Measured scan of single mutants.
Amino acid sequence: TFELKGKVGKVVKIAEDHYLVESEGDKWIAYSDEKLSLGDRVMVVDVDGLKLKVKRIP
């Protein structure tokens, strides 16, 4: 299986209740415990079905 946990991506869209993150050339629906901005670099900390939980990284 394709393992996304630990992968790095970038926030490419902000929606009302989720983010769109591009990682490894694909776009994924993501959510975070912190507020993210367009262009933020993020790391995948968990995968919930087809949704990614991400956190901001420097």
Rank of each mutant, 00 (worst) to 15 (best):
30 A>V: 13
13 K>Q: 07
13 K>M: 11
3 E>V: 01
54 V>N: 00
58 P>N: 05
22 E>F: 13
6 G>I: 00
48 D>W: 09
28 W>V: 03
33 D>P: 10
28 W>E: 01
18 H>A: 10
24 E>M: 05
5 K>C: 15
42 V>G: 00
54 V>T: 03
34 E>H: 06
23 S>W: 01
51 K>S: 13
14 I>L: 10
6 G>N: 01
44 V>N: 02
5 K>R: 02
26 D>C: 13
57 I>N: 08
49 G>P: 04
41 R>N: 13
50 L>M: 12
47 V>Q: 06
14 I>S: 07
29 I>P: 10
35 K>C: 14
3 E>T: 00
58 P>C: 12
57 I>L: 09
56 R>N: 06
54 V>E: 00
31 Y>P: 00
56 R>G: 11
23 S>A: 15
1 T>G: 15
47 V>A: 04
3 E>N: 01
17 D>T: 11
17 D>Y: 10
54 V>R: 00
24 E>W: 03
48 D>E: 08
57 I>R: 03
26 D>R: 05
28 W>R: 03
55 K>Y: 04
21 V>F: 15
10 K>A: 11
22 E>N: 04
56 R>L: 14
30 A>Q: 00
26 D>L: 12
1 T>C: 15
49 G>R: 05
8 V>Q: 05
38 L>F: 11
52 L>T: 02
19 Y>H: 04
34 E>R: 05
34 E>I: 05
16 E>F: 10
43 M>Q: 04
18 H>G: 12
32 S>H: 03
52 L>V: 08
22 E>I: 07
36 L>F: 05
28 W>M: 05
19 Y>T: 07
42 V>A: 06
6 G>D: 06
10 K>I: 07
2 F>H: 15
36 L>Q: 03
57 I>T: 07
49 G>Y: 11
44 V>Q: 01
50 L>I: 09
57 I>K: 04
28 W>H: 13
41 R>M: 12
43 M>P: 00
24 E>H: 03
21 V>H: 01
23 S>C: 15
31 Y>G: 11
23 S>P: 02
15 A>M: 10
21 V>T: 04
35 K>R: 08
20 L>H: 11
28 W>I: 05
47 V>D: 03
55 K>H: 12
16 E>L: 08
8 V>I: 13
30 A>F: 01
17 D>K: 10
14 I>G: 06
5 K>G: 14
51 K>H: 13
45 V>Q: 04
29 I>G: 11
22 E>W: 13
27 K>D: 12
47 V>N: 03
15 A>D: 09
34 E>G: 08
29 I>L: 11
42 V>N: 00
14 I>E: 09
23 S>I: 15
4 L>W: 05
54 V>G: 01
46 D>S: 03
12 V>T: 09
57 I>Q: 07
25 G>E: 05
25 G>C: 12
36 L>M: 07
20 L>T: 10
40 D>K: 02
58 P>H: 07
6 G>Q: 01
50 L>R: 06
49 G>S: 06
22 E>R: 05
47 V>S: 03
5 K>D: 15
49 G>D: 11
36 L>R: 00
25 G>K: 03
20 L>M: 08
57 I>M: 07
18 H>P: 00
26 D>P: 03
8 V>Y: 03
47 V>C: 07
37 S>W: 07
56 R>Q: 09
32 S>R: 08
50 L>E: 08
58 P>Y: 05
30 A>T: 14
34 E>Q: 05
4 L>S: 15
54 V>F: 02
44 V>I: 14
47 V>T: 04
33 D>V: 07
56 R>E: 06
19 Y>R: 00
45 V>C: 04
53 K>V: 03
7 K>N: 05
46 D>K: 02
28 W>A: 02
15 A>P: 05
13 K>I: 09
25 G>L: 05
46 D>P: 01
20 L>Y: 13
58 P>S: 06
43 M>D: 05
32 S>P: 03
58 P>A: 06
15 A>F: 08
9 G>C: 15
37 S>H: 09
1 T>L: 14
24 E>Y: 03
33 D>E: 08
32 S>Y: 02
53 K>D: 13
16 E>N: 08
28 W>N: 02
7 K>W: 04
50 L>A: 09
10 K>E: 12
54 V>L: 04
47 V>Y: 05
45 V>D: 10
58 P>W: 04
48 D>F: 09
18 H>K: 11
28 W>T: 02
57 I>C: 14
36 L>D: 00
15 A>S: 08
48 D>K: 04
11 V>D: 00
12 V>S: 07
40 D>A: 07
24 E>V: 03
55 K>R: 06
38 L>W: 08
36 L>S: 01
37 S>M: 11
43 M>G: 03
57 I>H: 11
49 G>L: 11
25 G>D: 05
13 K>S: 11
6 G>W: 02
41 R>V: 13
8 V>D: 09
17 D>A: 10
23 S>L: 15
2 F>A: 15
51 K>V: 14
39 G>E: 11
2 F>E: 15
29 I>A: 12
25 G>R: 03
42 V>H: 00
12 V>H: 06
2 F>C: 15
47 V>G: 03
5 K>W: 15
46 D>V: 03
9 G>A: 14
50 L>Y: 13
33 D>Q: 08
35 K>H: 12
36 L>W: 01
2 F>R: 15
53 K>L: 12
40 D>G: 05
27 K>Y: 08
27 K>I: 11
9 G>V: 15
9 G>F: 07
44 V>L: 02
13 K>L: 11
53 K>A: 03
39 G>L: 10
8 V>H: 04
43 M>R: 02
22 E>D: 04
44 V>S: 02
6 G>C: 06
17 D>F: 11
39 G>V: 04
39 G>P: 01
21 V>I: 09
2 F>T: 15
44 V>F: 15
56 R>I: 10
35 K>P: 07
41 R>C: 14
48 D>Q: 09
52 L>E: 02
31 Y>C: 14
25 G>H: 04
12 V>D: 05
49 G>F: 08
8 V>C: 13
15 A>R: 10
45 V>L: 09
3 E>K: 01
48 D>A: 05
13 K>R: 09
11 V>F: 00
16 E>A: 11
40 D>T: 11
54 V>D: 00
35 K>S: 08
11 V>S: 00
8 V>S: 04
4 L>H: 07
28 W>Q: 02
1 T>H: 15
5 K>L: 15
37 S>Q: 09
26 D>A: 13
30 A>L: 01
50 L>D: 09
30 A>R: 00
10 K>M: 08
20 L>N: 06
57 I>F: 08
16 E>D: 07
55 K>S: 14
49 G>I: 07
50 L>G: 11
2 F>K: 15
34 E>T: 07
11 V>G: 00
3 E>L: 01
29 I>M: 09
42 V>F: 03
55 K>I: 14
17 D>E: 09
17 D>L: 12
49 G>T: 06
24 E>K: 02
32 S>F: 02
40 D>E: 11
42 V>K: 00
8 V>L: 14
10 K>C: 13
23 S>Q: 05
9 G>N: 01
31 Y>D: 14
36 L>K: 00
3 E>C: 13
35 K>I: 09
25 G>T: 04
5 K>V: 15
9 G>S: 02
44 V>W: 03
18 H>D: 11
53 K>I: 05
50 L>Q: 12
1 T>D: 15
4 L>M: 14
12 V>L: 08
6 G>R: 00
6 G>S: 01
39 G>F: 11
37 S>Y: 12
45 V>H: 04
38 L>N: 09
11 V>C: 12
16 E>R: 11
27 K>H: 09
26 D>W: 13
38 L>V: 08
39 G>I: 04
14 I>F: 12
15 A>C: 12
15 A>E: 06
32 S>N: 05
12 V>Q: 05
34 E>P: 03
29 I>K: 10
54 V>P: 00
50 L>H: 10
18 H>S: 09
51 K>W: 13
50 L>P: 09
5 K>H: 14
58 P>T: 06
1 T>P: 15
39 G>N: 13
43 M>L: 14
14 I>C: 13
22 E>V: 07
13 K>A: 09
27 K>Q: 06
9 G>M: 15
4 L>P: 15
21 V>E: 00
46 D>R: 02
4 L>C: 15
16 E>W: 09
48 D>M: 08
